[in-house]
């Protein structure tokens, strides 16, 4: 049919429209930054005691991990060049995962005592309960 042919011609010309090849130098630059950050985070954890960074260690490690994650997401996964909706979906998923974590953590301390006082040795797991 003619309309299909017309569509075909236009897409054949516009194929570059939906492919976005990443330049090789950019891929390599991202990779070496990632390696650098990995080495840095290991070195940081080695030096925690020497630099007395214990209380910051968690935040430094997770911060570096997040930086690495962002590099992977934006460049390797092309999110920087992707459609807005895909971006929204992906980051919304982190929002919901965060929501799950935050609301669950809100009061685990409250009932922790009850959980801890559960008889440990008397009731071995995976046996028929005599309820």
């Amino acid at each position: 049919m003619t309309n299909h042919d017309a569509n075909h011609d236009s897409t054949a010309e516009d194929h570059a429209y939906f492919s976005h090849p990443m330049p090789v130098w950019m891929l390599l630059a991202i990779f070496f930054s990632l390696v650098f950050l990995t080495v840095m985070t290991v070195v940081m954890s080695e030096l925690t005691d020497a630099l007395q960074l214990q209380q910051w260690e968690l935040w430094i490690s997770m911060g570096i991990a997040t930086l690495k994650a962002m590099l992977v997401i934006f460049f390797f996964m092309h999110v920087l060049y992707d459609k807005g909706f895909n971006r929204l979906m992906f980051f919304a998923s982190f929002l919901f995962a965060g929501l799950f974590i935050a609301l669950t953590l809100l009061d685990t301390y409250q009932y922790r005592q009850d959980v801890s006082s559960f008889p440990k040795s008397e009731l071995p797991a995976r046996q028929v309960g005599d309820k």
Binding site: T38, E57, S61, M62, A65
Partner: peptide
């Protein structure tokens, strides 16, 4: 894995 690595191996 980028998150698992510091969480499991690094943070004291």
């Amino acid at each position: 894995w980028i998150y698992l690595f510091p969480m499991m191996y690094l943070i004291h």
